[in-house]
């Protein structure tokens, strides 16, 4: 009789203590594990332009030795190659090398950025010459490609320098919605926005939803809050940002 009573007491006390412990542990866990709970990643900026860049570089590498072998061979290539921009590149390369053959020979595989800037400078001159010659329409495309490339390289540079800061800023403002935490909602939302030099953000939109409206909403909110602490670019930069909500 007495032992049964004592047993019931004991059970209730244990229940209370365990309940309190789990509550305390849960709240502690949420606080400390928050960094792990929310993962932010900044991915590549634009896929098409990146691809294009690689093509250009490839072409550059190819055309340089070819030209040294034979001038006309490159021109033949230009004839049957369908892609205008690629062949354009080669023409520029030619123009370029007619003037400074030795210089181009030397820079076969130097570091990319340096090469690119030199390349750009020279290209501009080359474009001018091209216009003087008969290839007016083609020159236009060259200029386009030049613009695109310089912008891309700027984006690349921006990304490389400030990716960590953007990530930290967004992470700082990101909250895991309580209801999502309770319900165990997880997912990756891909957000896309354009950052302007005055620090403004435009075209903020969800590119790919996580499947839960509230997660998307919180991600957008975090980015618009964090935008003031983003490093300012000197040109508009388009950023694609996957935000992963994950519960442990």
């Amino acid at each position: 009789m007495r032992i049964a009573k004592a047993f019931v007491f004991s059970l209730t006390i244990h229940g209370g203590v365990i309940f309190m412990l789990t509550e305390a542990f849960d709240s502690m866990k949420v606080k400390t594990a928050f960094e792990d709970l929310v993962k932010v990643e900044v991915s590549n900026i634009k896929f098409e332009t990146q691809e294009y860049k690689s093509v250009v570089r490839e072409e550059k590498n190819k055309s340089t030795p070819k030209f040294n072998d034979n001038d006309t061979k490159a021109k033949e290539n230009k004839g049957y190659r369908k892609i205008v921009k690629k062949t354009e590149k080669r023409v520029i390369e030619k123009e370029n090398q007619e003037r400074e053959i030795k210089k181009t020979e030397v820079r076969g595989d130097e570091n990319e950025l340096q090469e690119q800037t030199i390349e750009n400078d020279v290209k501009e001159e080359a474009v001018g010459e091209l216009i003087e010659e008969t290839q007016n329409e083609k020159a236009g495309t060259v200029e386009d490609s030049y613009d695109e490339e310089s912008m891309l390289s700027y984006q690349e540079r921006y990304k490389r320098e400030h990716l960590e800061r953007i990530r930290e800023a967004v992470k700082h403002f990101l909250r895991y919605p309580l209801i999502a935490r309770r319900m165990g909602w997880e997912g990756t939302v891909i957000v896309c926005f354009t950052l302007y030099p005055d620090g403004e953000i435009k075209d903020l939109k969800v590119e790919k939803s996580s499947g839960f409206e509230i997660l998307d909403k919180y991600a957008l909110k975090a980015i618009s809050k964090a935008s003031s602490s983003f490093p300012r670019p000197s040109e508009p930069v388009t950023i694609v940002l996957p935000i992963t909500y994950r519960l442990e």
Binding site: I3, K5, A6, F7, F9, S10, H14, I18
Partner: peptide, 18 residues
């Protein structure tokens, strides 16, 4: 461990009451 704890507390309470 939980079982041990419950037993210990039960015995203690029972003894106290006794």
């Amino acid at each position: 461990l939980l079982l041990m704890s419950i037993i210990a507390l039960t015995v203690a309470i029972e003894r106290w009451m006794f």
